[in-house]
Computed example of a mutant assay.
Amino acid sequence: MTAAATAAHAGNSRRRFVAPLRGQVEAACFRHPLFDGYGEYLDLLTASHWPGIDALNTRMPLSGPRFAEQDAALLADGVHYETRIAQGRIATRAENWHDLFNAMVWMRHPALKQALNRQQCRHIDRIGTRERSPAQQALTQFDESGIVVQVRDASLLDPWDRHDWTTLFLANADRWREGGISVAAVVGHALMEQMLVPGRLLVGKCLVVQGDASNAVARVTEAISAGEALIAPSELRPLPLAGIRGWHADQVAAFYAQEDYFRPLREGRVYPRPL
C-alpha cells in the first residue's frame, strides 16, 4: 500500500462510513471469505431489488422476534430498540444495507442475537436508557464488529497476545488454512456493510474459543447468556482481518509492517483467556 493510500485509509477510518447504492455493488463482493457461512442468504444481497419485510420474515425461524419496518408509526411508541426486540419486533429500515446485514445475522445465528438482546435488556432494566454500562458497550461492539475465532493450536495465542502480526498471519499462514486457527463465524453486521467497498482494511472484535468444540458459536452464546463474556470492551481481541491469508490481495511482508493498521500492543494491554 502506498503512503497516500495509507493516509487515505487513516482518514476514512475517522469518517462515518456511507454505504454505496445497491446498484453500485458488484455481486463478486459477496464472494469474499467474510461472507462464508451466509451462502443461503446471498440472494437477498444480489437480487436487483431490495427484499421487503415480509420476505425477510419468511427466512426467520418460526419462533422468536420478527422484523418490523422502522417508520414514524413504529418509533412513535418511544420504546427502546432493544426493548422492542424483547417484545418481538426488530426495527428494520427499508432499503438499508446495515439493517439487511443485521437481518441476515438474525437468520443465521438467532440464539446468539437473542443472547445479546437479553443482556442489553438486563442492563437497561438496571440502569435505564440514559447511561450505558461497560457491558453494554462490549455487547454493542461485538454485535457490530464481532468475530468468533476458534483456536485449536494454543501456541498461536502467544503472537496474538503480543500483536506479533507477522508471526500470526505470515509465518503461520498454513495454520489458518489447516484449522489451527480459524474464523468460526462473522457476526458483526457493520463489518459486512463496510466490505461493500472492496479492499477496505477492517478490524474484527473477537471472542475466542479454544479447543475442538464442535460449535464455537454455541459456546460463545452460552457464555454471553450466562454473563461470563462481554462484561467490558477490553475482553474483545482486535483482529486485522486483511492479514488472514486470502482475505486481502496485498499480503507481502511489507504489508504487515504498517503500524497504522497492524497496531503494536498498547502498554499494559492484556487479553483474557479464551472460552
Rank of each mutant, 00 (worst) to 15 (best):
Q119N: 07
Q120D: 06
C121G: 00
C121I: 01
R122T: 14
R122F: 14
R122K: 11
R122L: 13
R126N: 10
I127P: 02
I127W: 10
G128L: 02
G128D: 03
T129R: 10
T129M: 05
T129V: 11
R130M: 08
R130Y: 12
E131F: 14
E131D: 14
E131G: 09
E131L: 12
E131M: 14
R132P: 03
S133C: 04
P134T: 04
Q136Y: 03
Q136S: 06
Q136K: 06
A138W: 02
L139N: 01
T140L: 13
T140I: 12
F142Q: 03
G146T: 07
I147D: 04
V148H: 08
V149T: 03
Q150T: 08
R152N: 09
D153W: 09
A154Q: 12
P159Q: 12
D161G: 08
D161A: 15
T166V: 13
T166M: 10
T166H: 14
T166W: 11
T167F: 09
T167P: 10
T167V: 13
L168K: 10
L168F: 15
F169E: 01
L170D: 12
A171Y: 10
A171W: 08
A173C: 11
D174H: 15
R175P: 01
W176S: 00
R177L: 14
R177Q: 13
G179E: 05
G179Q: 03
G179D: 01
G179Y: 12
G180I: 12
I181F: 04
V183F: 06
A184E: 04
A184N: 00
A185Y: 12
V187E: 09
V187G: 12
V187W: 11
V187N: 08
G188Y: 09
A190I: 11
A190Y: 10
E193P: 05
E193Q: 12
E193W: 09
Q194C: 13
M195K: 15
L196E: 03
V197N: 05
K205M: 06
C206R: 00
C206E: 09
L207M: 06
L207C: 08
V209A: 09
G211T: 02
D212N: 12
D212A: 10
S214T: 09
N215P: 06
V217F: 03
V220N: 01
V220W: 13
T221H: 07
T221V: 03
E222L: 04
A223L: 05
S225A: 15
S225D: 15
S225G: 13
G227C: 07
L230Q: 10
L230H: 01
I231T: 12
I231R: 14
P233T: 04
P233R: 02
S234T: 12
L236K: 00
R237Y: 10
L239A: 06
L241H: 00
A242Q: 00
G243Y: 07
G243L: 11
I244V: 08
I244M: 08
I244W: 04
